[in-house]
């Protein structure tokens, strides 16, 4: 898996950064405009996935190693849960919006809405890393044999 032609590689090198930026924008403005943690996370994952497709798996894993992705996946999920638990301690309710109650921001501003942007970021990290890992796993599945003896084989994923 060495990647595609030099045209595709060059275009991907430029667009991957822009796609990543757009994903970050969708996440950061999730409480103001359509989008949010899930959509932004998928866009972030797409920016890594087109790198896998164009440059090959090794180049993408150089940017985002599998161990890092797997840990960030857990970190995102646990951060979301931690926000909820902090709400239970500080605000008295599971998922209480304690930050908004403590210091209400200006409406329609980015630094506003308490824990909602933080939860968006946590979900985005989680979704991005999950989908990146799922793509890596499924892209390395290989079909061996034909017909009845066909066997799914997975290489270099552990």
């Amino acid at each position: 898996m060495t990647g595609m032609t030099v045209i595709v590689k060059t275009v991907t090198r430029w667009t991957a950064a822009l796609i990543f930026l757009y994903g970050a924008y969708v996440v950061a403005y999730g409480h103001l405009s359509p989008g949010g943690g899930f959509a932004g996370g998928v866009i972030l994952a797409c920016s890594y996935i087109i790198m896998v497709l164009a440059h090959g798996r090794e180049a993408a894993l150089g940017k985002l190693p599998k161990a890092v992705a797997s840990r960030l996946d857990s970190v995102g999920a646990l951060a979301f849960l931690a926000l909820a638990l902090v709400g239970m301690v500080v605000g008295g309710l599971f998922f209480a919006n304690w930050l908004q109650n403590l210091s209400p921001g200006t409406a329609f501003h980015v630094f506003n809405a308490g824990i909602i942007p933080l939860a968006n970021v946590a979900i985005a990290i989680k979704v991005c890393m999950s989908l990146f890992l799922v793509f890596l796993i499924l892209a390395s599945v290989r079909m061996l044999g034909k017909g009845e003896q066909a066997e799914l084989r997975c290489d270099e994923v552990d």
């Binding site: 999730g30 409480h31 103001l32 405009s33 359509p34 949010g36 943690g37 909820a84 599971f94 998922f95 919006n97 908004q100 209400p104 921001g105 409406a107 329609f108 506003n112 809405a113 308490g114 824990i115 909602i116 939860a119 968006n120």
Partner: peptide, 17 residues
């Protein structure tokens, strides 16, 4: 909630569970 996008307000505040 302070969130201008009501869908996000529902997803991450009212129905965050």
């Amino acid at each position: 909630t302070g969130s201008a996008n009501i869908v996000t307000a529902v997803l991450l505040d009212y129905r965050a569970y």
